[in-house]
């Protein structure tokens, strides 16, 4: 799987590599993403927002659930529940995002996620994602 196929494009792509594919019950899926030393990360924008950590969990969940980047791109973050932030990511840090399926009904999925940094957890929470309705706009 090439990084070019992952959901979204830089700088709004929060998945670089799949570290662990989830089992059939969707437990234990993990992805990794490198926080680059670009302006957004180093100037207190972009990654400093807890909303983007929720988006990162959603992108990880959609990619791992779909198993295919094209299908993953048709899903989107639809809600955030119980999100807590310990600290913002640092430029140069590699994050590992762990996700597991909490529940689903039709096209709506609730995933629990944790964002781990190099010295512990950065954020945890649940996100709602919806699949299949967003139009895919090819570049």
């Amino acid at each position: 799987m090439t990084t070019a196929a992952f959901p979204h494009a830089y700088p709004f792509r929060f998945v670089d590599t799949v570290a662990q594919r989830p089992d059939a019950a969707f437990q234990g899926g993990r992805v990794r993403v490198r926080v680059t030393g670009n302006a957004r990360a180093s100037m207190g924008e972009g990654w400093q927002s807890p909303l983007l950590l929720a988006e990162a969990i959603a992108q990880a969940a959609l990619l791992l659930e779909a198993g295919d980047a094209a299908a993953a791109r048709r899903g989107y973050l639809a809600g955030i529940q119980e999100m807590t932030l310990e600290r913002a990511p640092r430029a140069g840090e590699t994050l590992e995002i762990a996700v597991r399926l909490h529940a689903s009904f039709g096209p709506v999925f609730r995933f629990d996620g944790e964002v781990h940094g190099e010295d512990g957890i950065l954020a945890r929470g649940s996100v709602l994602v919806r699949k299949g309705e967003a139009e895919v706009v090819e570049p």
């Binding site: 639809a78 689903s104 009904f105 039709g106 709506v108 609730r110 709602l128 919806r130």
Partner: peptide, 13 residues
């Protein structure tokens, strides 16, 4: 909507 439906599913459980 469908988001609410999932919350109701969890509530029933």
């Amino acid at each position: 909507d469908s988001i609410d439906a999932l919350e109701l599913v969890l509530g029933l459980e």
